[in-house]
Design a protein around this nucleic acid. Structure first.
Length: 280
DNA sequence: AATACAGCCTGGACGC
DNA sequence: TGCGTCCAGGCTGTAT
């Protein structure tokens, strides 16, 4: 799924298109589970007529603030994307939710794998307060990362993927950040030194910031594009470890390895990111 | 506390 | 233009 840079790019694209200030004129739910726990009729009744007042992002959630104290929390999961079309355009097989807007545009939730969720709630904090810190917030410091790492015996990468520990990293950027910090993904979190934590902190920020500047990572040739317009994210040219198994490490030339960690493919350089002593 | 695994879904890539 | 297997940017619930 889109990770933090892709969700933020989606947010910026939608603001640029003019989503703020629009009113939901009509809604269609094409895959009921998308709007759980509400029934489609209830979702439609509650959202129709609402004005979109603000569009924020928290971790991988898009936070759509609506009039009347309601909020839409959109999570794209693996294959979700938000498309900005006009209300007359044909409905695609993979459209799961359609919001027709008063200005004639149509916001469409396209989600091949149907994992994505759109939650309409009056209490978004019940969800958002469970998330860890925002890695791009100026208040997120190397010191706080170091202190929190010390409280876990987990392996580094699964911890970085835990949205309650840190909000926004996914499989691509976790691998990229660990590669830059030259830390093995299976290192125990509480074995990280203050200097290593500082390096990891800087790497996470750099990887996310650069991805954001490149408007995210669009996978594949075009079908893997997550953006609401036709444009592609350009960040795949920056990937140094992710999906590069057997290709030479850009730093030392050693073939990148692929292992499974917490049921996720994990790419790293066995030379630059040496295995901790306990690791097989 | 941490991990493993199934489940949620569809489709593309690859081997035969 | 077949079939089977594995894989995919995420997360949750349950078991161990």
């Amino acid at each position: 799924m889109p990770e933090l840079p892709e969700v933020e790019t989606t947010r910026r694209d939608l603001v640029q298109k003019g989503l703020i200030g629009e009113t939901v004129a009509a809604a269609q739910v094409l895959w009921p589970r998308t709007v759980t726990p509400l029934a489609p009729e209830e979702f439609i009744a509650r959202i129709t007529g609402r004005r979109i007042e603000a569009l924020r992002r928290r971790g991988k959630y898009l936070v759509v603030e609506l009039s009347g104290g309601q909020t839409l929390l959109i999570h794209l999961r693996m294959s979700g994307r938000l498309q900005w079309q006009s209300a007359g355009e044909a409905v695609h097989d993979h459209h799961r939710l359609i919001l027709d807007l008063s200005g004639g545009a149509s916001l469409r939730f396209h989600d091949t794998r149907k994992f994505g969720r759109v939650l309409l709630t009056a209490d978004p904090d019940a969800v958002l307060n469970r998330l860890g810190p925002e890695p791009l917030a100026p208040t997120w410091s190397a010191e706080s990362l170091y202190l929190r790492l010390g409280r876990h015996r987990r392996r580094l990468k699964p911890l970085l993927l835990d949205q309650g520990f840190l909000a926004g990293l996914g499989n691509i950027y976790a691998d990229e950040a660990l590669f830059r910090a030259q830390l093995h993904p299976a290192c125990r979190a509480d074995g990280i030194t203050a200097a290593e934590a500082e390096s990891l902190h800087g790497s996470i920020r750099a990887v996310l910031f650069e991805a954001l500047e490149n408007r995210g990572t669009s996978l594949g040739s075009g079908d893997g594009n997550y953006r609401s317009n036709q444009e592609m994210g350009e960040n795949s040219k920056n990937l140094q470890a992710y999906d590069r198994a057997k290709a030479p490490c850009p730093r030392c030339g050693t073939p990148i390895e692929r292992i499974m960690l917490a049921q996720r493919s994990t790419f790293f350089c066995p030379e630059c990111q040496p295995a901790p002593a306990f690791f097989p």
